[in-house]
C-alpha cells in the first residue's frame, strides 16, 4: 500500500488526462513568472489528511505575501513539500463536489460522488456505486444527491457523468484502492481537481 501526497496524486491524474490547476514546487530557484496570482500555497505530504483543518493551506495569496506563507508552512510542516498553485476562479456557474474511490470487503472497488468542500462528512450528501459504472449509474448517482439538483441547474450533468466514468475507468485499471478528490470544481464545460489523495495497492 502506498499513500501518495497531493503533488504525486495530481501527477497521476494529470497523466491520465484529468485537469488540475497549474502549480510550481517552491524552492530557491522556482520560476513564478508563469504563475497567475493570486495563488494557493499548500503543504503536501502523505501525513496531512485534512489540509483545511490542519492549517496546511493558504488561499488567495498575492505575490507579495507568498514568501511569508511559504515560511509559515515550512515551519509547521518541516517534512512536507510546499508548493504554489493557481487559484481556480469559481462563480455561480460552478460547483464544488467530492469524488472518491474506496475498496469494500464484499463489493470490491466502489466510486463515490457527492457535495464537496469542508462539510462532506457532516452533510453526507453522497452516493456510491460499484466500479465499473455506466452512464445510467453516473446519472443515478447525481440524482441520489441533493447537490445533484444544482449540477443539473448549472448544466454540468454531462461533465460530471463524463468525469465519474473516467474515474471509474481509472480505478478499474490502475491499482488504486482509495482516492479522495475534494473539491472537484464542475461547470458546464470542465472539471478541475483542486485537491487529491490517492492510495495505491502495491
Amino acid at each position: 500500500m502506498k499513500r501518495l501526497g497531493e503533488i504525486e496524486s495530481k501527477r497521476l491524474l494529470s497523466a491520465h488526462g484529468f485537469t488540475v490547476p497549474k502549480h510550481v514546487v517552491y524552492d530557491n530557484h522556482c520560476d513564478l513568472s508563469k504563475i497567475a496570482f493570486p495563488v494557493a500555497v499548500k503543504a503536501s505530504s502523505s501525513q496531512i489528511m485534512h489540509k483545511m483543518r490542519e492549517g496546511a493551506i493558504f488561499l488567495n495569496v498575492c505575490r507579495d505575501d507568498v514568501h511569508k506563507a511559504v515560511r509559515q508552512l515550512r515551519k509547521k510542516f518541516p517534512n512536507a513539500t510546499v508548493f504554489i498553485e493557481e487559484m481556480v476562479q469559481t462563480g455561480p456557474k460552478s460547483l464544488e463536489c467530492a469524488v472518491g474511490v474506496l475498496t469494500t470487503k464484499v463489493y470490491g472497488k466502489c466510486i463515490m460522488f457527492g457535495a464537496g468542500g469542508r462539510f462532506v462528512e457532516i452533510f453526507e450528501d453522497v452516493s456510491f456505486r460499484k466500479i465499473p459504472i455506466n452512464s445510467h449509474d453516473a446519472r443515478a448517482m447525481i440524482a441520489d444527491t441533493i447537490i445533484g439538483g444544482e449540477v443539473e441547474r448549472i448544466g454540468a450533468t454531462n461533465c460530471v457523468v463524463d468525469f465519474l466514468l473516467r474515474i471509474s475507468d481509472l480505478a478499474e485499471h490502475v491499482d488504486i484502492i482509495e482516492m479522495d478528490l475534494n473539491p472537484v470544481i464542475f461547470s458546464d464545460k470542465r472539471a478541475i481537481v483542486l485537491d487529491a489523495k490517492i492510495v495505491l495497492d502495491e
Binding site: L102, T103, V120, E121
Partner: peptide
C-alpha cells in the same frame, strides 16, 4: 459500517 480496506482516508471514513 461497511468493512472497508485498512486505510481510512477521507472517503474511507465516509464509507
Amino acid at each position: 459500517k461497511e468493512g472497508t480496506s485498512a486505510v481510512k482516508s477521507h472517503t474511507g471514513a465516509l464509507a
